[in-house]
């Protein structure tokens, strides 16, 4: 038992936690912007999938992982524009557009992957992938050094992005307007700023974040390969993280880490029980997270109410 626990709570698990959490966290950074702007963005899964494919394609065509990331970012802009065109300009049902976007992405990427790479996918092709970063000074630190070292560059980038996003959302005028576009669109309009434009901006930035998440997934996490349906509901989990973190970048990142931890835990437990059962864990945890966040919200509301009635008395 002791040995099992040591195996489960090893540095490797926490390293895996970071690696699993990163694509979800990147997508969640985009999802929280659309959430603030008042758009229910179910389509992130498709955005990630397309980013993953275009990342691989760009890297394959230009023989450079950096070009792959750049093309994924460009695609993110395009998808964000597309999403906003339908949801903001044409005022379509965002749930239907999101669902359709996911199916569209699944169809398009599978179609293109088979057309370009053949039936066996990218496995036979040599695709430049993102390098890992080795920091010498981390070698000196025993446990944490092992966790933090030799990771894909994107893991460190994500930390920067979380901080940047926090500043953007809470400390810049543009972030303030995006939040207002979701909460009080008419007030924002009175102030002379178009809420629609803010929704466009949020959608485009969300597209970019999801594109990055996809590029990391295919070029970093899986070392330069594309698998059909590889986003594997990560977009939905990112959405759950946004809800769980109340669209706060830091809290959403913590939620993503939590998902990553349970994902890593599942990997570790595979040595002891069926991998099909361990794969369930992160998805079940997401459901539990969704329930918890609602229950917590309601409890807060009731304590607030009892407090105010107590004051009155």
């Amino acid at each position: 038992m002791d040995e099992i626990l040591r195996h489960i709570f090893s540095a490797g698990t926490f390293n895996q936690m970071l690696r699993s959490a990163t694509p979800v966290a990147l997508a969640a950074m985009g999802g929280l912007l659309t959430e603030h702007a008042g758009i229910m963005n179910i389509g992130m899964d498709g955005m990630i999938l397309m980013g993953a494919f275009i990342g691989v394609l760009g890297s394959y065509l230009c023989a450079s992982a950096a070009m792959g990331v750049a093309s994924a970012v460009l695609l993110g802009v395009a998808v964000g524009l597309f999403f906003a065109l339908f949801v903001v300009k044409f005022k379509s049902d965002e749930f239907i557009i999101g669902c359709a976007l996911n199916t569209f992405a699944a169809g398009l990427t599978a179609y293109l992957s088979r057309s370009i790479f053949g039936l066996s996918g990218t496995s036979g092709h040599d695709i430049a992938h993102l390098p890992t970063v080795h920091l010498d000074f981390l070698d000196a630190i025993p446990f944490f050094g092992e966790i933090l070292n030799d990771n894909s560059f994107f893991i460190y980038l994500t930390w920067g992005l979380v901080a940047l996003m926090w500043v953007f959302v809470y400390k810049t005028p543009c972030g303030f307007w995006i939040r207002a576009a979701g909460e009080k669109p008419e007030t924002l309009r009175t102030a002379g700023i178009s809420p629609e434009r803010m929704k466009w901006i949020a959608s485009i930035l969300c597209g970019i974040c999801c594109g990055l998440a996809g590029a990391h997934l295919s070029l970093g996490y899986l070392n330069g390969s594309f698998v059909e349906g590889m986003s594997n509901s990560r977009g939905y989990i990112a959405f759950a993280c946004v809800i769980f973190g109340a669209a706060n970048p830091a809290k959403a990142y913590i939620a993503a880490l939590m998902f990553g931890f349970f994902d890593a835990l599942g990997y570790r437990l595979q040595s002891y029980i069926s991998s099909d059962l361990t794969s369930i864990i992160p998805y079940l945890i997401t459901v539990v997270m969704m329930v918890y966040v609602v229950v917590r919200g309601q409890r807060k509301k009731t304590t607030l109410r009892t407090n105010t009635t107590a004051q009155k008395e």
Binding site: I237, L277, Y283, V287, V291
Partner: peptide
């Protein structure tokens, strides 16, 4: 979200 998550759970 809950139904989508439960889909994956059911598949496994």
């Amino acid at each position: 979200i809950t139904t989508i998550m439960l889909n994956t759970v059911a598949i496994y």
